[in-house]
Write a protein that binds this DNA or RNA. Sequence first.
DNA 1: GTCTTCACG
DNA 2: ACGTACGTGAAGACC
Length: 890
Amino acid sequence: MEDKKKLLLIDGNSVAFRAFFALHQSLERFVNHNGLHTNAIYGFKTMLDNIIENVNPTHVLVAFDAGKKTFRNGKYSDYKGGRSKTPTELSEQFPYVKKMLDAYGMKHYELQNYEADDIIGTLAQQGEKKGFETTIVTGDRDLTQLATSQTTVAVTQKGVTEVENYTPDHVEEKYGLTPSQIVDMKGLVGDNSDNYPGVAKIGEKTAVKLLKQFESIEGIYANIDDIKKSKMKEHLIEDKEKAFMCKDLARIRCDIPLEVGLDDIAWTGIDEKELVEFFQEMDFKRFLEKMKTDSQNDTSRKVIENVDFIALSQKKLDQIDLNEDEEISFYLEILGENYHNAPLVGFALNIGTKYYVARDTKLLKNSKLRKFLENENCSVDVFDGKRTFVGLNRLGIHLTAVRFDLLLVSYLLDTSDNSNDLGKLAQMHNYTQVLEDEEIYGKGAKLKIPEKDAEYFGHLCNKVRTIKELRKSMMQKLASNHQEELYYNIERPLSIVLAEMEIDGITVDTNRLEEMGSEFKERISEIKETIYQEAGEKFNLNSPKQLGVILFEKMKLPVIKKTKTGYSTAVSVLEKLRGMAPIIDNILKYRQIAKIQSTYIEGLLKVTFKKDSKVHTRYTQTLTSTGRLSSVDPNLQNIPIRLPEGKKIRQAFIPQKKGWQIFSSDYSQIELRVLAHISHDANMQTAFSEGQDIHANTAMNIFDLDSPTDVTSNMRRQAKAVNFGIVYGISDYGLAQNIGISRKQAKEFIEKYFQVFPGVKEYMERIVESAREKGYVETLFKRRRYLPDIHSSNYNVRSFAERTAMNTPIQGSAADIIKVAMINMQKMLKEKGLKTRMLLQVHDELIFESPNAEIPILEKVVPSVMDAAVSLDIPLKVESSHGITWFDAK
DNA sequence: GTCTTCACG
DNA sequence: ACGTACGTGAAGACC
């Protein structure tokens, strides 16, 4: 028996709207890696799956509204007037909804001058004649007028998966009317959301009563004399024209000229490959997993096909013949984040069409393999060159000619894609033939290498294959972004420089740290005792929650600020409470010292390597969205300096040998100089070119002073804050908060600033505009940051993106510049054969250890190399210092 | 794991 | 009317 033909008609706009608002509270959780919101797409997808399962259609069409104006506007110009604009978070999703429908193999259609409703009505009518069983899916109850014995209208409920099915019986039940009377009711009642009025003072109840009696609007007016005198009758007479017009507006057209017919919309089924790609683009991980498990259950297909590989052993290695080849892909597996000490547990490499793999990394020392890694004529493609370099270095192997570094390139293409899992990144670049490490190795305490060779080796080879397969397309993207120079001349060489710095490490005087530790320990217990006495009880001082209770409930101090979870006890709050109770000062002191003790003394001791008494930080090169580095295990970029107690920690950072010193050079005001350069502000450039004190200069300008001698220290402090604010993408609120002035005053400062530095103002406007146009901002060296939020309808979200647009080119260009300086510096040290080692980078500062004899050389060379890193409209300025510890290099 | 706080540029 | 300075990492509490 032939199956019944089933037609599914979907009101695309209305379902997308419903889906969007149903998932509106989780809007920000549904964002893909490109910043696209995906909640409506997600909801739409859920609805589709649901309806496919329930209806099992043979023919499908999704209808969309074509534009704002339709023939209805010709009849009534205010039709759908006054509607608020569709949020951009939704409108940006429509093209992707359509893309998804393509992957589902479903036709979608829109027609100028008509609404989706009319397309649906017309096709439903055609289906009726041809004996289709039709389902219409919509969020709009108006479509219930189309219900017949053959056509059901499924109206989405709260969410999008639950629907209410309107058959003629159900319409009757719900409204007391037949489907065809729905338009009469709308004519009488009007429609707020479509903005047409109906008859004054007639609501649903009255309308139903009238229609029960007179059938239709025509019937009502034909028998208007039978209605007894009443206000209602007056309104009916008064609004007669409106009633007919509104009915006409409400009536869905079932005979419009369509370019598609039922034959064109036969459903051919889902294109799985296309859908997988689409879900990857959307980051719909769960759907992908579901598809994967579904297809695994369906044994006919597997998502990942493993390659054939040769498992290496010493013996095997002796037997096989490896030809010299000019390019290989290589992956070294290190089990754990910290590649300085985590176990080296395996490797895989691809040469030509062959894959080799082993658990024993010592095999790499064999000259047959070693020659690939250490030969400068053999290019090696890797994932995370720095990690690989350090790992190989532990085997005594010197990785020489990295060509493609997947991790690094991926980061440059989009600095917000900052995962460091190969599987995850591969997915983002639409390559699916490799799993995430977590799926193979597990995580946390359960982290371990699979015992089965097939599984483990397969995974390692898949990684190598991924590197091999993704190289071309990613390098092409890099080229089309004009980022090749950034990659070849900056990031790739930098990764090696960083590796060398990490491997060198910096020596820690653990005795000094322990000494300070016991001093601080005593002070901490003294202060603790005092606080407990002042509070009248013991409590956990480290708990903001418990402290809050003591301060704001027991001691009844005024609440300045609240956090999500309770009272804020942050420094800014405590400072306002100062003087109200002696306990406050003690708490502040306690906090200060406890921080030093736990983070910098105990924390640092924990990560100091016993064998060399050094800390080997890891610089994260692919994390920050601006291009800066970050430093972990330990973080050496936030060692205390501002307060004297904390600064002492720096006494524990010492050179590796007696007779050596710590040497430090930093860029002075590099971010403001970068701003002066990219904004071309004449006033600001002059200040720098003439070597003026920039903060004092700003003070003179915004306070209208004639002479530098008129600048008080307070004015300079405030001007400095304004300068910082400018760099951050200023707001009056933020500035006011920072220097404790009124918002109004802050606003005046900013206005005055822009008046005297008009170039800066223009830059700020220009960069935001450009971010809106292009969707991203760039640094001097074409590092790119995408800012999709710049189009957000949410003020806060949008404002944040705007500030980011202003800040990123400044912060990021400064980061570019010091990176260039580091590469040149390392090169210089090697060329000159100096013993000096470059050890640390702290954003605008480079720190070296150096034999005493080389200090005079560094004093000349380092500033000149840093100066020359880039040529700006204005000079850069570098200041240097040195001493026997980091503390003394001031 | 998330939140709060605080260290740095 | 809204409600925020830009970029990070680590520790401890709490769930």
